[in-house]
Design a protein around this nucleic acid. Sequence first.
DNA 1: CATAAACCGTACCATACGGTACGGATAAGA
DNA 2: TCTTATCCGTACCGTATGGTACGGTTTATG
Lengths: 201, 201
Amino acid sequence: MKAASRERRRNEIMDIAVEVLAERGYRGASMLEIANRASASKETLYAWFGDKPGLFEQVIRRNARAVQAALAPRLENDTTAESVLVAFGQALLRLLLGEDAVAINRAAISEAASDSRLAQVLASAGREATLPDFIRFLEGHSRNGTWQIDTPSEAAEDFLGLLIGDSQIRRLLGLLPAPGEAEILARANRAAARFSRLYAP
Amino acid sequence: MKAASRERRRNEIMDIAVEVLAERGYRGASMLEIANRASASKETLYAWFGDKPGLFEQVIRRNARAVQAALAPRLENDTTAESVLVAFGQALLRLLLGEDAVAINRAAISEAASDSRLAQVLASAGREATLPDFIRFLEGHSRNGTWQIDTPSEAAEDFLGLLIGDSQIRRLLGLLPAPGEAEILARANRAAARFSRLYAP
DNA sequence: CATAAACCGTACCATACGGTACGGATAAGA
DNA sequence: TCTTATCCGTACCGTATGGTACGGTTTATG
């Protein structure tokens, strides 16, 4: 009964770490404030997570697992290729433009100049874990003739570019609010339609 | 003879500010180090730029002017529409993925959580200054039949998405080096080709 | 050449943060 | 109920930063 409780506590603390991160940014998120809000002690934070980068590395890994779990199922082909594309696009936009991902990406970017540790973790647990699945999905539909694709990796980039555009950057800059469900659907639909036109046989 | 000299000195200091920014990130770029490298005194920095955000606000404005000056001429139609698109794309990629812009965008993103002042300046002097020109360019070629475009603003986003993809984010995360001229040309060509296919009459 | 302004180098102050140490409370286990 | 390990709250230390003050020196101006 103890391991489960510790795991819950760990998650509580990481939830609060993301919360503080979103409010104050990476440098501004002090270990003291995280400890206080979590009714934990600094010593516990350091005992469990090593140091400040260590804490946020764990936060990033946990987030990446959630992303992977939300995206992978969307790529299982049970309906139209284009509808899978739309569903995948929606899920990706929801995650990428949501508060947590924005806070995490801001943190990784903030530190990238002097230390790319967080960025490395973000990339290897995020993009590099999901993109191959998506590319395989495109390859499948290239072989079966849905689309005519020469280089699936480039096609994947095209779709992501059409889907996301510069909304992620503007979101990171704090110039856009988190999009509503309607806007997400519209963007995903548009991107899928453009993609289908681009790679029509 | 004094005004010109002061202006040169100002630019020297801002050059060094960008340099330090690129090495240490926004929080890590201390006013002391900037002053020391510039053989200036902290007091002069504060006298000229107000405070730390003020200094980097000036840096951003200067960079935005350079960007605008580099991009606007590309849109003057003297050759093929597609070749203008390629040239514009090349120039944009060079600027957006270059060291200075990366450092500046990182800074604005770092502070966005707690203070969007830098981001506001970056947006209003950057994107909002150049995008309208590009949209007008697309409108012109929509009227004259080169492309069939319903909503020029969306078409502009499509081109930028195809052009940039996720390379800007990966660059900000420190996962990609600055691209060489060959790669820039290739990306611009690809994006222009895709765009032409997408909006062919 | 003399005078005044601008600027450099240094010292200084208050503040905040990361990280460590320690005593007391609390909850699990025998 | 007693014991032991865990965790909370607080205090503490060294360091670094933004911002200000000031004497001395260089540079422009008359």
